[in-house]
């Protein structure tokens, strides 16, 4: 199953401000809901998101239970060098979803 969609410009000029967007498929189960039998459904959210550019962290976020399912994040950075932009979403259940995109900077 494909679990994430990321958008990064494929090319940019050095020094240009670029927009990066990332969306991961996740239920973001709050831990406050109950199932049909009244049992609490355990919390299971993405609690942390990290984006690196050519190995360096450029953006990270801590997420909380009130955030909707399939969280969408958009942020900007300055294009510095050609390389890989990598995305990681860390789930409460220990899982890590990952995605990468490449950018060519001229």
């Amino acid at each position: 199953m494909s679990r994430a969609l990321v958008s990064v410009p494929t090319t940019a000029r050095r020094g240009e401000v670029i927009e990066i967007r990332a969306m991961a498929a996740h239920l973001m189960e709050t831990g406050h809901r109950t199932d049909a039998t009244g049992t609490t459904i355990p919390r299971n959210i993405i609690h942390r998101f990290v984006c690196t550019y050519d190995g360096d962290e450029i953006f990270s976020a801590v997420l909380f239970p009130a955030i909707a399912a399939n969280p969408f994040l958009a942020f900007t950075t300055t294009a510095t060098t050609s390389g890989v932009i990598a995305f990681s979403w860390f789930g409460d259940d220990g899982s890590v979803q990952q995605a990468t995109a490449e950018i060519t900077v001229t």
Partner: peptide, 15 residues
Amino acid sequence: DMSNPAMLWVADGEQ
């Protein structure tokens, strides 16, 4: 398409 969450399902369907 990059902010439409339903595209996550479309991508799954393609797989």
